[in-house]
Structure formats: C-alpha cells, structure tokens
Simulated assay, not measured.
Amino acid sequence: MERRYFLRGAVIGTSTAAFGGSLWRGAAVAEPARPGVGPYGALRPADGHGMRLPSGFSSRVVARSRQRVGPTAYVWHDAPDGGACYADGTGWIYVSNAEVTPGGASAIRFSSSGAVTSAYRILSDTRQNCAGGATPWNTWLSCEEVSRGYVYETDPWGARAAVRRDAMGRFQHEAAAADPVRRTVYLTEDESDGCLYRFTPTTWGDLSAGRLQVLVAGSATSGSYRWADVPDPDGSPTATRQQVPGAKRFSGGEGCHYANDTVWFTTKGDNRVWQLNVARDTYELAYDDSLISGSAPLTGVDNVTSAASGDLFVAEDGGTMDICVITREGIVATFLRLDGQSASELTGPAFSPDGSRLYFSSQRGSGGSSSGGITYEVTGPFRR
C-alpha cells in the first residue's frame, strides 16, 4: 500500500543546533525564505547513482530494498522512510522506517570509517511506519501513518523490544520532535485538516503516561497560539483533531524538527515550512512557495532536519526529487537532485553525529515500487 499527495500545481547529532540570521531570529514575524544562491554552489552533472551534487560532495548507496546490506546477511526493508542517526562509540547508527504493511523499522551500524558493520530489525509487524523522531534518551519514535495509528518507541541498538506508546494518541501520525527544555514531544498529523500536537510525559524519559494537547490558534499564517488538552487521546469515536474547538488546521502535516526553542514542521498540502517559537508562543511561515514569483525551488515539502550550521535540509515528495537547503540567512536553494526517479520521494534525511555525512532514502527508487527503495549517504564539506 503506497501513498502520494497530488501537489498544488503539479538526527540526533544535530537536533539541538542553534539557528541564527534574520530568518531564525530578530523580528517577531520574520520574512519567509526566498530563492537565492545557496552556500554550496551549482549542481554538477549526475554521478553514477543519478545524483547531482555540488562540487566537493560524493554519494554512495548503503542499502537497497530486498537486498543484503553491505557485508551483512540482513535484507533491507521496502519503502524506507523517516530516519535518524545515533552516536555509537566511535561509529554511529542510522535507523529507517518502512512505510508498508506490515512495516516496522531497521538499523544500520557504521564504524568510525563509515564501513557498514551490521544491520538488523528494531520494529516489526506494524503499519505504514512513515516518519518519527529521535529522543534525547536515544530511542527512536516510529509513527504509523494510518487512521488511529500508534507511536512505537524502539531501541536503535536492537537490544530492547519496541513498546507501543498509547498515551501519545491514536491518529494519522507522521513525525515527532522532542524538546528537552520544555520536556515535551511535538507530533504532526498527515490529514488535509490535521493538527499539531504535543505530548508531555508525566515523567521525562518515560512515555507510558502523560498529557496530549493540540495547538489552538486562528486561521492566519502568523500569530500567537495556546495548547488545549485532547479529552480522548484514543480518538474513538471522535477523531482527536475534532475534539477541541478552535484547533488550528494544517494541510497535510509532514516532517517535524526541534532546535533552539523552535519547532520546524512542514505541510505538504500547501507546500509550507512553519516555525513555532515555543519560548514566545508564536508561529509564522519559514517558507511558502505561493509567495515566490516564477518557479519555486522547493515543492512537495516532506521530511526535515538541520545541519550543525543551523541550516535546514528539506526533502521533497514529488517536485524535482530534491533535497533543498534553507539557510540561516533565509535563502532557499537546491542542495541535491536525483535524476530518473520521479515516481519516488526522498525521505529520512539525517546527519551523522559529526555532521560530515547525510543519510536519506529514495522510497521507491527508479521503478516506482516500494520494493525498489534505495538508501544513500552523501559526504562532503557541510557547513559547521
């Protein structure tokens, strides 16, 4: 079972990176990002993997769906989606969801040199595991993108069994972003009239019990907001998004990322990147393609992460199969492009703990099937 939106007109190592510049700080309502010359320059011709990258960057394939991962015996899952990286001694681990049913999540362990040393399953027998998010206590929250879906807390090392976190609500989950300052987790909902939620556990570090709330605000694209309790997180018989009068609607919530008192999240139905200032209780647009004259560089906004520099990296579902950068100076530009894979989407961007490698997947590869997923690594001089 596969899902695609029809568009209008068509990691743990860096999760606390500080944002600077006019887009991220300063005025109460900042100017949304505009197209410009990115920090990495023009894209070169496609390499042997069909990937167009700036000068100084290179790519490699680390896994393919239904094939063994590197020298291991583990077979990579179909439809790779949301992902994150975790420090592992001198190496690291990349986890990836499977957006199929039955779904789940898998992990790849890398040595300090970047060599694949092992791969294994960390979650099984779930449904349409789309995005998710890393926690400060080094677990992976894998989210089911189905009606009344669950959040599962998993162990990237595969030593502990995954646990279903019912208190985090049952709805069409997309992504999660943990805020260690306010000790809460923000959650997006992939519905055309979806909401933005936060879950505050009774005890930080234990997601078995807590308080689920929904963001309440007006219909404008900027302003103040408040949080209201969701009376019945189970979402039956009344969906969670319908339980609180005045809950703000977002058109297809997708990626979600926390950094420096700001929650960044994307809505694919209207091709926007939002920023929620959780210290001032205000929200505004960080990017909106309808405000751009001519061809917009970023369409089909989906998963989002940040580099050590504070630049945002936004993956496309559709568009021209790009990962775009929104710089701390407020410029949006294409960072990479995959040729010949227009029936796919880019998913799971996450940086290695040292910030030198970017991992992501093409969910359906060149054939347009969930069995054709490809997971990549890009190495190069990322800004610090």
Rank of each mutant, 00 (worst) to 15 (best):
Y197G: 13
G36Q: 10
T203N: 01
A73H: 11
Q363V: 13
T14H: 10
S55L: 07
G255Q: 00
S251I: 04
V151M: 02
E329L: 15
L276K: 07
Y287H: 15
A46C: 06
G83A: 12
T139V: 05
F110T: 00
E2G: 15
G255H: 01
C143E: 02
F57T: 09
G380D: 00
I326M: 15
Y197A: 14
F199T: 02
Y40W: 04
F351A: 09
G50F: 07
D179C: 07
Y40C: 05
R109C: 12
A177W: 05
T200V: 02
R198T: 08
L291H: 11
A279S: 15
E345W: 03
N97W: 01
L358S: 08
D206P: 00
V11H: 10
S219I: 02
G91C: 11
V230I: 10
P180N: 09
E189W: 05
P156Y: 11
G367L: 12
G21V: 04
F360W: 01
T16C: 02
E2R: 09
G355Q: 01
S112W: 06
I326A: 03
G223F: 09
A33L: 03
A296S: 14
E145S: 11
Q172F: 07
R211F: 10
G50A: 05
V244F: 06
M321P: 07
A134G: 08
G235S: 03
S58Y: 08
V151C: 08
D47Y: 06
G367D: 09
S224N: 13
A87W: 05
D166Y: 05
D81A: 09
T126C: 07
T379D: 05
T117F: 14
G103F: 06
A30V: 02
V62I: 14
P35H: 07
R383L: 03
R364Q: 03
S22L: 06
V378Q: 03
D232G: 01
P32D: 02
F313C: 14
L291V: 12
R165W: 04
G158A: 11
R280Q: 13
A27I: 04
R226K: 04
A286Q: 11
C324I: 13
S106N: 14
T90N: 14
S356T: 14
E254Y: 07
Y120M: 03
D47M: 11
F351Q: 02
G89V: 07
F313S: 06
G372N: 08
R272Q: 08
V69T: 06
L7S: 07
V230S: 11
S306T: 15
R241I: 04
C130T: 01
P80L: 12
Y120H: 12
A30T: 05
E99G: 01
T375L: 09
F360D: 00
E31T: 07
S111Y: 09
L212S: 08
